[in-house]
Write a protein that binds this DNA or RNA. Structure first.
Lengths: 234, 234
DNA sequence: GACAGCTTAGGTGTATGCAGCTTAGCTTTT
DNA sequence: AAAAGCTAAGCTGCATACACCTAAGCTGTC
């Protein structure tokens, strides 16, 4: 029901002092990383207690997030994490397929040693998933991978849209992924291997194409599940 | 300095009662339509007085807008309308060039009689601009044209990005346009004529390409001004 | 027993006061 | 006269109390 339980009042003491921006980042991350699932209610008062602040900064954070299409507030009812319709999911994925190709086209950032190191680190971690799958770790690797990719996008507008579509699609994908652990782990390994090769050649265009290929792969998986009977695997 | 002056307290009586969403729409429109110019300060207290509400709903509206990259708040200083850097302007335009081509590609909405009628109405209004240019009317025609185009975009994600890049680029373009009245009027007439033809054939793909062509035209004009010496024509 | 209406609990929306941050202008010192 | 520091004004950020909206459950009636 409510995704918060383990650290109801512990968090009040762990942060220096949460302001609206920090809360915003945290909430987005929690939604992406599936700690809050589509349909979950985010109660302002509850979050305020957790962070040790008043409702005001929480409200500010929620308001800023609302334009990303991740949450929706209705007066008298509550604020819930948006559950995208099947059509919307398709739209976001179709869009990401196109955006991926633009990564190497619109003023790309030449991938350097830092990118390579980051990817190789993620590859190491992904390999360990084969001998013991951990859903949280899989999600985290994907999340950090996404940030690495974003850092290769030189066009600020494209980068913003890449981020936006990622957060919109993330929870859907991670829900699907949790039902096919072995499959998605192998796919992630392939993706990272391909990316390492692309970055070794300093080829940002190849990075974009690799992304496109694997988005296409994920899209196909999601479509298959949608046609089977939906992904309401709460 | 402050863009509000003529209706400081008049508006308090003209609306039924402004809520945060209504204020949000109004502020976005005012920024697009160049009533607030880049660099202008938007004081919460002042806006609250104008709309006859407290600072809270104004704050909520500003917070929601902030994710569009149109405004920026700094504690102790104020909230200002963002002035995009030259690089950011180029990025947005490069992005719009790509998005335009996707209009006819990603689940387009077949243009119908309603679209045609709307475009022909705009064409009529645009023709009158040749015998007496009015900056406000030029901006309004462009604004409504943009909404017509958006209604032909079936992919919700693409439509959202199309809107987002429009509001980011709008004020820049309208500032440029005001220095070359005859030129941009002719270009607008051509654009509308081309669009009418495309819509007559029910060809959404052609609509996208027409958009691309004219975005390219505007981009070239802006680039020319940037190289001449900037567009700080306050 | 079923349905219409009321009542109440719980959520978001708004108003208001205060705290804290910045900056501009004045004052004071060298 | 110039520069450093102080001071005050004005803005946003935050806290709190209250108003309003919604839905669910109870109650009374038919």
């Amino acid at each position: 029901m409510n995704a918060i339980d383990d650290k109801s009042k512990a968090a009040a003491a762990l942060g220096p002092r949460m302001d609206a921006s920090a809360i915003q980042r945290l909430l987005v991350e929690r939604i992406c990383l599936l700690r809050y699932r589509p349909g979950d209610q985010l109660k302002e008062a509850e979050l305020a207690r957790e962070f040790g602040v008043s409702r005001t900064p929480v409200r500010d954070a929620l308001n800023r997030i609302s334009h990303l299409g991740m949450i929706e507030s209705r007066n008298g009812v509550g604020t819930v994490v948006v559950r995208l319709s099947e059509e919307q999911i398709r739209h976001v994925y179709e869009m990401r397929l196109e955006l991926a190709c633009l990564i190497g086209k619109l003023s790309p950032v030449a991938p350097g040693p830092a990118h390579l190191a980051a990817l190789q680190g993620l590859l190491q971690r992904a390999r360990r998933l084969r001998d013991g799958f951990k859903a949280d770790e899989y999600v985290l690797i994907n999340h950090e991978l996404h940030e690495v990719i974003a850092s290769m996008i030189g066009n600020s507008s494209l980068r913003s849209m890449w981020l936006q579509t990622y957060v919109q699609a993330a929870s859907t994908w991670y829900m699907v992924a949790q039902t096919r652990e072995a499959e998605v782990t192998d796919a992630l390994l392939e993706e990272l291997t391909d990316l390492v090769n692309a970055v070794k050649h300093g080829d940002a265009e190849a990075v974009g194409f690799v992304q496109r290929i694997h988005i296409q792969y994920g899209f196909a998986k999601i479509n298959a599940m949608l046609e089977e009977g939906g992904l309401d695997a709460d």
